[in-house]
Design a protein around this nucleic acid. Structure first.
Lengths: 119, 119
DNA sequence: CCAGGCTTTCACATCCATTTCACGGGTGGG
DNA sequence: CCCACCCGTGAAATGGATGTGAAAGCCTGG
């Protein structure tokens, strides 16, 4: 065969991430993510259920500390959310913790009431 | 490099690859591919559904690492796509993942909507 | 030596990703 | 109620990656 692979696979609901293949599957179908989008998703997923700060995301995905006024992390979280919601509307994967950062977890989209899970 | 069992057959939609005979059938009809074209197609097909980087394609098909500025992989992907589309217009087999590489899979040509999830 | 196919290289077109900006809503403190 | 800060979001601006046609170089069978 070819190179040995670590066979790492991250699953959350209908989502499946295969870091070895740079591949993300949503309900079995491959998702087309850009490099940064993929980086953000993977970084969050690997650290679940921890809350990951923007600073950490920046240094991990962008490879440099977060500059003041830089909104790129927010923008990319938004892009990933958008693509995920498109394919898997029934679940939410990236949760905001105001003042702290973001947290990855597959949770049902519903949650009306003062959602205690995301605050 | 690609040793194989004498009965290996890869099928994807109307496409069939028989590595033992270096033969590619499109809807039952043999397709005429050059050595490089065949190499690219086979390498991608064997690694499906993985995303295969240009670097990997270069080392597998060309037998040497990808030099900076070398576009031969892109050119041959284009040639294979062209020949496949000519014979099987209803399906797309080689998908681009910008920043990552190419992925082999038989998918209907007619894109769904503005769906940017899988190009 | 010649012809034709294959391969490589190049130039340009196009598409896409990334960054950056702007605006607005939300929240919590005072 | 006002204000400072945080976050969501659309969109312009920018740069990089990929698609593509064609020229140029190679190789092999005849």
């Amino acid at each position: 065969m070819e190179a040995a692979r670590s066979d790492e696979v991250i699953r959350a609901g209908e989502l499946e991430i295969r870091p070895d293949d740079a591949l993300v599957l949503a309900a079995g179908r491959p998702l087309n993510l850009s490099v940064r989008e993929y980086g953000v998703l993977l970084a969050l997923a690997r650290r679940a259920p921890r809350i990951v700060s923007r600073e950490e995301l920046s240094s991990v995905v962008w490879d440099h500390p977060l500059r003041t006024g830089d909104r790129s992390v927010d923008v990319y979280v938004h892009k990933v959310r958008f693509k995920l919601e498109r394919v898997l509307p029934e679940a939410r994967f990236i949760h905001t913790h105001v003042g702290f950062g973001y947290r990855f977890a597959a949770e049902p989209s519903h949650g009306f009431h003062t959602d205690a899970t995301t605050r």
